Every structure is written in C-alpha cells, then in structure tokens.
Simulated scan of single mutants.
Amino acid sequence: MSRGWTRDQVAARAAKELRDGDYVNLGIGLPTRVADHVGAAIEVVVHSENGVLRIGPSPAPGHEDPELINAGTEFVTVGPGASFVSSSDSFAMIRGGHIDVTILGAMQVSAGGDLANWIVPGQLVKGIGGAMDLAIGARRVIVLMDHVAKDGSFKLVERCSLPLTGRGVVNRVISDLGVIDITPEGFAVTELAPGIDFEEVASKTGARIAKTVDRFPLSSL
C-alpha cells in the first residue's frame, strides 16, 4: 500500500466535502482538480472569479477551447446551463456570501485558522487576486496542500510568518497526510491517509495537534 495521498487523491477527498446544491469556488492549481471528482449523485455549481458558472471537468487533451478558461487561465469545460457574467457580478456573489465553499491552496495555515496563500517567498507576485474576498466571503474555507514545504519546513504552524490573506478563516485542511480541522484548541486530525500514523503528522506539524478519534477509516481513494 502506498503511503499518503497523491495530489489527485487529495482532490478526490476534497470532492467528498461538497453537498448537493453547493456553489463552490476552486482556487488555481490543485483545487481545480476537485471538479474532476464530483460524483454524479450530486449537483454543484462551480464558480470562477472571472465570471464563469457551472465549470465542468478538465478538458481532454486536444479538446481545449481557448475561449473557456478559469481565473487562473487554465482551460475548463462548462456544463448544461452554464452562465457567463461580468467580473463585478462574480465578485458580488463572493462578497454577498453566496459561495457555500471555497477550496484554496496555501503556503501556511496557522493553528487559529489564519491563511497565507498569496505571496511566494523569493518570487515576484502580481497581487492578491480574489483570494482575500473568497477567504472572507465564502461560508466555508477548505485548504488543499502538501503537509510540508519542498524544503521540509512546516506549513501548518502556530503563527503564520508570511503576510495573511485572511485571519481565522480556514475550517479544514486536506493534505497528503490526512484531514486536519481547525478547532478552538488548534489543529485536530480527523482522518489519516493510508500508511500514515498520527505520530508522523505530529512530527511534520509546527504546532500542537490533537488526535480527535481513536480509529481512522481506511481510505477508498
């Protein structure tokens, strides 16, 4: 059995968080893969900040339509009943509290649910984009990310050292090691990926983390 979840498996696990009728915004990068794993038993409306509603799965290679892109300029498909609105109307949806769930990437998440995801250290960044609006405007914020950075540094930390996107906004983190909730007491593991034990998660987390259940379900991903 392989250890931990692959990036596609993280996206598939995140898709299980969605409920029928949800309006969902998917951040650029890994979160966009969540649309590929939404089950046929539910209907969700995937929203993009550039004004696309009802984004579908990623297009097959060779079938990309240059007129259909998301806010991260990635090629997308659209489902039946798709709508196209102005950027101002799109952000009015976000700021008006009409997005049920946003799924974002992150460089750091603090034990208090603070989110840092718009500055990449050592790289020129154009701006914060829609992340700040989504972090505050969505009813639920889920973060998908590798549990530790490429250099081995912690991404789940007591306090963020990078500039914040939002303070106290994150509800749940899904990493390659498992599912971690933000509670009033800090981080708490609620599910472990295959082959991962609590001790490994704790050793790769830069803050106190609790184990909230004694048994962890075997992943079917």
Rank of each mutant, 00 (worst) to 15 (best):
M1H: 15
M1G: 15
G4R: 03
R7L: 12
A11F: 02
A12K: 01
A15D: 11
L18W: 09
D22W: 00
I28A: 12
L30P: 00
R33D: 08
A35E: 05
V38R: 00
V38A: 02
G39S: 12
G39W: 02
A40F: 15
I42V: 11
E49K: 00
N50T: 01
G56Y: 02
P57Y: 05
P59H: 09
P61D: 07
E67Q: 10
L68H: 09
N70D: 09
G72V: 08
F84Y: 12
S86D: 06
S87G: 14
D89K: 08
S90E: 00
A92S: 15
I94D: 05
R95E: 06
V101T: 07
G113I: 00
W118D: 12
I119N: 09
Q123Y: 15
Q123L: 14
V125R: 04
G129C: 04
D133Q: 03
D133S: 07
G137M: 04
A138Y: 11
R139K: 14
V141T: 12
V141R: 05
I142P: 05
I142S: 05
L144K: 04
M145C: 07
M145N: 06
A149C: 12
G152E: 04
S153F: 11
K155W: 11
L156C: 11
V170W: 06
V170K: 05
V173E: 03
G178R: 02
I180L: 09
D181Q: 01
E185Y: 15
A188K: 03
V189F: 03
V189R: 01
T190F: 03
P194C: 00
I196K: 02
A202Q: 09
T205E: 01
T205V: 00
G206C: 05
K211R: 15
T212F: 13
F216Y: 14
